[in-house]
């Protein structure tokens, strides 16, 4: 109705969206709003004491976390190092495996189409499986410990790395490759002399970036039994030993910040 009024008073300016779309969007908006309102009141009813009660609960729990128990540092340092090692090993293995996969998944290097499509599809499949799911599966297969965690991280980071690096390879300047081919270089020599120098900085930067992701991911994987500091954190939370858990969280926080800082600095220097 207001629409009609507008079009009478102002000059005939067509609306960006047709009237039908406007109505649809409005209906959807109110439906969504309705769902939110309903779920809010419903949650309220479920929570004893409503929202104020919930917040009170939060404060009570937070209070239990303080002060963190500094005495456990020496005991949790070992698992923390394990977590870092897990990330380092997984990133290194993934970085090595990435090289052939990224080359096969780059259209400008792998001119044999079927091979290119098979590799692409394989990498896409890898990336559809969340790292947590991988960890749960591997923990089920190999039992609790570092090994399933490392395996999950390798597959997870391989999916990301190979994809990103194959795209870097596809964007290189092909002219030097042609020059080396024309001077009698074979496929390996051409890749080594003309391609690698062009992608190496990006490669190193991406590997460091994935390493940062892996540090954080390996903590989370620990929660589902894949070893390292995450496993310990999960145990302490299970025992309701909140001061210990707090200390672990603080340690993880510091380590992640330090590693990310160093890695960012290196990456800045590279590019």
């Amino acid at each position: 109705m207001t629409n009609e009024n507008n079009s009478v008073t102002t000059k005939k300016v067509p609306s960006i969206y047709p009237a039908k779309t406007k109505i649809q969007v409005t209906v959807i908006f109110f439906v969504v709003l309705g769902i939110y309102l309903f779920s809010m009141t419903w949650t309220q009813q479920q929570m004893v004491g409503g929202f104020s009660g919930a917040f009170q609960n939060v404060f009570q729990v937070i209070e239990k976390f303080f002060p963190p128990n500094t005495a456990v540092i020496s005991a949790i340092w070992g698992p923390m190092v394990e977590t870092i090692q897990m990330a380092i090993i997984a990133t290194t293995v993934a970085a090595i495996l990435t090289v052939p996969l990224a080359l096969l998944a780059a259209q400008n290097v792998t001119t044999f189409k079927p091979l290119y499509y098979i590799t692409r599809t394989f990498l896409n499949l890898l990336r559809t499986i969340p790292d947590l799911v991988l960890a749960v599966i591997f923990v089920g297969l190999f039992g609790i410990g570092l090994f399933p965690g490392i395996l999950a991280l390798i597959i997870f980071s391989l999916g990301i790395l190979a994809k990103l690096i194959s795209e870097t390879i596809e964007s290189v300047d092909m002219n030097p490759l042609e020059a080396m081919r024309a001077s009698g270089g074979n496929v390996l020599q051409v890749i080594w002399y003309a391609l690698i120098p062009q992608v190496l900085p990006q490669f190193t930067s991406l590997v460091l970036y994935v390493f940062e992701i892996n540090i954080r991911a390996s903590v989370v994987l620990g929660l589902v039994g894949a070893g390292g500091i995450g496993l310990i954190l999960n145990q302490q939370l299970g025992f309701y030993n909140y001061p210990n858990a707090m200390m672990i969280i603080i340690l993880i926080f510091v380590v992640v910040i330090v590693i990310e800082y160093i890695s960012t600095k290196i990456r800045e220097a590279l590019l």
């Binding site: 002219n175 030097p176 020059a179 120098p197």
Partner: peptide, 11 residues
């Protein structure tokens, strides 16, 4: 072979 765009590895 010599090319119009030199075709060197720039890095």
């Amino acid at each position: 072979m010599i090319f119009q765009n030199y075709n060197l590895v720039k890095r």
